[in-house]
């Protein structure tokens, strides 16, 4: 029964490892950049000035309400045509996934800040904190605690949707599975391995999110 596993060569295993590296690289870089974009955009969304608060929506809404694969094709195939910007597949994947992560992360930041009761702000002001000190010392630590579990869930999701980069010829885990399937003609075996590898990365992260959620939880 297990003979078919043994039919994979060392080269195939090396090929898979390289592909996992690419998937992790693309995901880590894009969630890092996306988180930074999301923090900035999310905080602008919290502005008291309605016009300023609405500006990030121009970026957020189109990215939240269109398929990632379309965004990826626009960057990789569309930009060279309209703006003569030619990106290699890796750059196109990182840019698209970063912007996509940023859009979703900004919503998380905005919701977390809004979830802090007005009274928490007032209690800080009443003790003499100005707006910056209040945010830095009292509000931000609470926002962070609310944010961590949902941020991890978003990161897991971004890891999974990173598989779309295989559609622009980048050899990530999914693309590696596709290539090896064509070579071995054993789709169940190869995609089974791809499935297990994604699961092996995502599941511990999902458990970590659950644990953190319990650890940092508090009621107002």
């Amino acid at each position: 029964m297990f003979e078919q596993y043994l039919s994979l060569t060392h080269y195939d295993i090396f090929f898979f490892l390289k592909a996992i590296g690419m998937t992790l690289w693309i995901t880590l870089v894009s969630i890092t950049i996306g988180t930074l974009i999301g923090i900035v955009m999310g905080l602008i969304r919290c502005s008291k000035n309605r016009i300023v608060a609405a500006i990030p929506l121009i970026y957020i809404e189109p990215l939240r309400n269109s398929p990632l694969v379309t965004q990826l094709f626009l960057t990789y195939y569309g930009l060279p045509v309209v703006a003569n910007i030619v990106l290699d597949a890796e750059a196109a994947a990182i840019i698209t996934l970063s912007l996509n992560t940023g859009a979703f992360f900004s919503v998380l930041v905005h919701s977390a800040v809004k979830a802090i009761p007005k009274l928490q702000w007032e209690a800080g002001f009443a003790l003499g904190h100005n707006r910056y000190s209040n945010f830095r010392n009292i509000i931000a630590p609470q926002v962070l605690r609310l944010l961590i579990p949902s941020a991890i869930t978003l990161y897991i999701n971004q890891l999974q949707v990173s598989s779309f980069v295989s559609l622009i010829s980048l050899i990530d885990l999914t693309k590696a599975g596709h290539i090896l399937t064509l070579r071995t003609m054993r789709p169940f075996l190869i995609y089974g391995i791809v499935f297990v590898l994604y699961f092996a990365i995502s599941y511990p992260l999902s458990k970590l999110a659950q644990r953190l959620e319990k650890k940092v939880a508090f009621n107002f």
Binding site: L119, A126, I138
Partner: peptide, 13 residues
């Protein structure tokens, strides 16, 4: 002027 409110507002974190 220190102020204490009707609702108890400790910083929960």
């Amino acid at each position: 002027c220190g102020m204490v409110f009707q609702q108890t507002i400790l910083f929960p974190h």
